[in-house]
């Protein structure tokens, strides 16, 4: 449906905005490497099924694109010259292990099929995605204010989440037996994390 497509497009746009920012400004200052690495982990654990689930060309292609773009961002942040010298690890100080560990436990404990390692990995990726933005939000708070493109990037990520939430309501109403408790709860948690950011984003845009 169109709402979900809008969600996917704003998600993809967020990658391009971030790549554009770090290529143009030659700087990754204010960008959380931890969040970006968590996203690589999210996509690699969620899209293992790319090898056996061929739902549509769209789905398979988007999976490859999401993995490739997230790996590319981490690559530029770690290896890019001069980008790698502009990274501030002292500001990127969120204790990310405390995000990954509970998500692993939750993924093993609560999933759609306790006998399937793929379902565990998939559930893990859903839980981790919900909280993966936290190191980035923490960094924005420590910095005081985010650069324009960085805030557009975070805004697009939050927008993607909002589109998906609306898409779930729409699917629940139009598709018989459509039920996705894990995804809905995690998605709602993820959206809540953006509320404070959204508030400040809109406020600063009004000021401009």
């Amino acid at each position: 449906n169109a709402i979900r497509l809008a969600g996917d497009m704003s998600h993809m746009a967020s990658f391009f905005v971030l790549l554009f920012k770090i290529n143009k400004s030659k700087s990754v200052a204010g960008i959380s490497l931890k969040t970006q690495e968590l996203y690589v982990l999210v996509f690699c654990t969620r899209y293992v099924d790319i090898f056996w689930n061929h739902l549509s060309l769209y789905n398979s292609l988007m999976k490859v694109i999401f993995i490739a773009l997230s790996v590319m961002i981490v690559y530029v942040m770690r290896r890019g010259v001069p980008q790698r010298s502009t990274y501030n690890p002292e500001l990127d100080s969120f204790p990310h292990h405390w995000l990954v560990l509970p998500c692993v436990l939750l993924g093993v404990a609560i999933n759609q099929d306790p006998t399937s390692p793929f379902e565990m990995a998939w559930a893990f990726s859903i839980y981790l995605e919900a909280v993966a933005i936290m190191p980035q939000l923490h960094m924005v708070q420590k910095h005081g204010e985010a650069e324009n493109l960085t805030s557009h990037y975070i805004f697009l990520l939050g927008l993607y989440r909002v589109f998906y939430l609306v898409n779930w309501v729409y699917r629940y109403m139009t598709e018989d037996g459509y039920w996705q408790a894990i995804v809905w709860v995690s998605g709602a948690v993820q959206a809540v994390l953006y509320l404070d950011f959204f508030y400040n984003y809109v406020k600063s845009k009004q000021k401009d």
């Binding site: 979900r4 099924d49 898409n167 459509y178 039920w179």
Partner: peptide, 10 residues
């Protein structure tokens, strides 16, 4: 989705 149903969202 029922268990093991292909995941159709990203």
């Amino acid at each position: 989705a029922t268990p093991n149903e292909p995941k159709d969202e990203l």
